[in-house]
């Protein structure tokens, strides 16, 4: 299968290893990867801020460039939800409505793609650590990816998954919310970090680097020993 990899801006600039791991995993499974270099962002930040005109302006190149893609895979539940769930709404009543729906239909969040579309759960990975999983809200509730990452983690050699009490509670990132309502975002993050720390895990694993950027920022400031890591990096570990 020819897979178009959509790489969100923060993965590109801050967490390139996430995308590199995805390429490695998908190529190992025998697929061809295409990276549309022209695309940088799905347009979610202006969308969530209420600036839908700007969001459409950001999203149009995405629709255009991925028009002929066979399948689009994203290593983020949040940007995945933007393209899969919100593009059709964003373009409802606009000329691009049909192409937004078409893109939505062929867009996959990474763990969902592996488990649901490819039917693969064992990637031959080894990660000898105790981990806890953070459900990113967009992945969990917009894309319904609760089981998929856990099925993948269950097959990783040496990995022990301990669920935290607040696994499904939002970490408080929320995009621009994190800075517009910084104290609320921080308070929510503290609840998350404390809940994760209670498990005595070595790593908080998630399918969303944006959540992890916020959580890691808090962990670093609070000098907690637990680290964050994207699930793609875990699945690419040998």
């Amino acid at each position: 299968m020819k897979i178009s990899l959509f790489v969100p801006c923060y993965i590109d600039a801050i967490y390139p290893k996430v995308a590199i791991s995805m390429v490695r995993i998908l190529e190992k499974l025998g697929h061809t990867i295409e990276f549309p270099e022209e695309l940088t962002c799905c347009g979610q930040p202006p969308f969530n801020s209420g600036y839908w005109d700007d969001a459409r302006r950001s999203a149009r190149p995405v629709l255009e460039r991925l028009k002929d893609a066979e399948v689009v895979v994203i290593g983020s539940g949040s940007c995945g939800a933007m393209m899969k769930v919100f593009y059709p709404e964003l373009f409802a009543g606009h000329p691009e409505e049909a192409s937004a729906k078409a893109l939505s239909a062929k867009t996959w969040e990474f763990t969902d793609f592996l488990v649901t579309k490819l039917g693969v759960t064992d990637l031959g990975a080894t990660f000898p650590h105790k981990v806890t999983f953070h459900d990113g809200c967009h992945g969990l509730r917009e894309l319904k990816t609760k089981k998929q990452p856990r099925e993948l983690l269950a097959k990783v050699r040496g990995l022990e998954l301990v669920e935290m009490k607040e696994a499904e509670t939002c970490c408080g990132f929320g995009g621009t919310f994190a800075t517009k309502y910084a104290s609320v975002s921080t308070a929510m993050g503290e609840v998350k970090c404390a809940s994760a720390a209670e498990t005595n895990a070595d790593f908080i694993v998630s399918a969303d680097s944006s959540c992890l950027m916020h959580v890691q920022g808090l962990l670093d400031r609070q000098r907690r020993p637990i680290r964050t890591i994207h699930i793609a990096e875990v699945l690419a570990s040998e």
Binding site: V7, I11, I14, I20, E37, A182, Q216
Partner: peptide
Amino acid sequence: AAWTKSRELPEVAHESFRDYWK
């Protein structure tokens, strides 16, 4: 400041994914 008041900033990677890809 709105970020760093309570959180550390992440570091920009030495090589972005698009540079890696190139």
